[in-house]
Amino acid sequence: MAVEGNSLVDWAAFGQARSELGAGFVRILGYFREDGVKSVAAIEQAMRAKSAAAIVIPAHTLKGEARQFGAEPLALLAEQIEMTARDCVERHDTPEDALPHIVKLRPLFTQTLELLEREANPLVARKPQGGGFGRRVASY
Rank of each mutant, 00 (worst) to 15 (best):
D35C: 00
D35A: 07
V37M: 05
V37F: 06
S39D: 14
V40Y: 00
A42P: 01
I43L: 08
I43H: 02
I43P: 00
Q45E: 15
A46K: 05
A46M: 11
A46P: 01
M47A: 12
M47G: 01
M47R: 03
A49C: 08
A49P: 02
A49F: 07
A49K: 14
K50G: 10
K50I: 03
S51R: 08
S51A: 12
S51M: 06
S51G: 09
S51P: 00
A54H: 11
A54R: 13
I55Q: 02
I57M: 11
I57Q: 13
P58F: 10
P58S: 09
A59F: 03
T61W: 04
T61V: 09
T61K: 08
L62K: 05
K63C: 08
K63N: 08
K63L: 08
G64M: 05
G64C: 04
E65D: 09
E65M: 07
E65R: 07
A66L: 03
A66I: 04
R67Y: 05
R67I: 01
R67S: 10
Q68P: 00
G70L: 04
A71D: 01
A71I: 02
A71R: 01
A71Y: 00
E72D: 12
E72P: 00
P73E: 08
P73W: 07
P73D: 10
L74G: 01
A75Y: 05
A75S: 14
L76R: 14
L76D: 15
L77N: 01
L77P: 00
A78N: 03
E79V: 04
E79I: 04
Q80K: 15
I81K: 04
I81M: 09
I81A: 02
I81H: 01
E82K: 06
M83A: 14
M83H: 12
M83V: 12
T84P: 01
T84C: 13
A85Q: 05
A85K: 01
C88H: 05
C88A: 15
V89A: 08
V89E: 11
E90P: 02
E90K: 15
R91A: 15
H92M: 12
H92V: 09
D93L: 14
P95W: 12
D97H: 14
D97Y: 12
D97V: 14
A98S: 13
A98T: 08
A98K: 02
A98Q: 05
L99W: 14
L99N: 14
P100V: 12
I102Q: 07
V103A: 11
V103T: 13
V103F: 05
K104Q: 15
L105E: 00
L105F: 03
R106P: 00
P107M: 09
P107R: 10
P107G: 08
P107W: 10
L108A: 01
F109Q: 03
T110D: 15
T110G: 04
Q111S: 13
T112Y: 02
L113E: 01
E114Q: 11
E114A: 14
L115A: 11
L116Y: 03
L116P: 00
E117H: 03
E119H: 13
E119V: 04
A120Q: 07
N121G: 06
N121P: 00
L123R: 10
L123T: 07
L123E: 11
A125G: 04
A125S: 08
R126P: 00
R126I: 08
R126C: 06
K127F: 07
P128G: 09
P128V: 11
P128S: 13
Q129M: 09
Q129K: 12
Q129S: 11
